Amino acid sequence: MATRSARTRPARTSRPRRRSTPAPDVGSATPAYDAVLLLGFGGPEGQDDVIPFLRNVTRGRGIPESRLEAVATHYRARGGISPVNEQNRALKSALESELAGRGIDLPVYWGNRNWVPYLGDAVAEAAAAGHTRLLALTTSAYSSYSSCRQYREDLAQAAAHTALAGRVTLDAVRPYFDHPGFVTPFIDGLRTALAALAGRNVATGDTHILFTTHSIPSADAAASGPRDVGWGPGGAYVAQHRAVAEVIMAALPETGRPDWSLAYQSRSGPAGMPWLEPDVNDAITGLAAAGGTAVVVVPLGFISDHMEVIWDLDTEAAATAAARGLAFLRVPTPGLHPAFVAGLVDLLLERIPTGATPVRAALTSLGPWRDVCSPGCCEKAAAHRPV
Rank of each mutant, 00 (worst) to 15 (best):
Ala251His: 07
Val280His: 02
Phe302Asp: 04
Thr293Ile: 09
Ala288Met: 00
Pro258Leu: 06
Val247Ile: 14
Ser266Leu: 10
Trp260Val: 14
Gly286Asn: 09
Asp279Cys: 10
Val280Tyr: 01
Thr315Arg: 14
Val331Trp: 07
Met307Phe: 11
His306Asn: 03
Met307Ser: 05
Pro253His: 01
Trp311Pro: 03
Met249Asn: 01
Thr293His: 12
Pro334Gly: 03
Tyr264Asn: 01
Ala327Ile: 08
Tyr264Lys: 00
Leu326Trp: 10
Leu313Ser: 09
Thr315Trp: 12
Ala317Asp: 07
Pro270Asn: 12
Ala289Asp: 12
Ala290Ser: 13
Asp305Lys: 08
Val296Glu: 01
Val331Cys: 10
Thr255Gln: 13
Pro334Phe: 00
Gln265Arg: 15
Ala319Asp: 11
Val298Pro: 01
Gly292Asn: 03
Ala322Cys: 02
Val247Gly: 04
Pro270Ile: 10
Ala250Lys: 01
Leu313Ile: 13
Ser266Cys: 11
Tyr264Phe: 15
Gly301Ile: 10
Ile248Phe: 10
Ala283Trp: 11
Pro253Lys: 05
Phe328Arg: 00
Met249His: 03
Gly291Thr: 08
Ser304Thr: 13
Ala251Asn: 02
Ala290Arg: 15
Ala318Met: 08
Leu344Pro: 08
Ala339Thr: 11
Glu254Val: 15
Leu336Gln: 06
Met273Asn: 12
Leu329Gly: 08
Ala318Val: 08
Val341Met: 00
Ala289Glu: 12
Leu252Arg: 06
Ala322Pro: 06
Gly292Gln: 04
Ala321Trp: 11
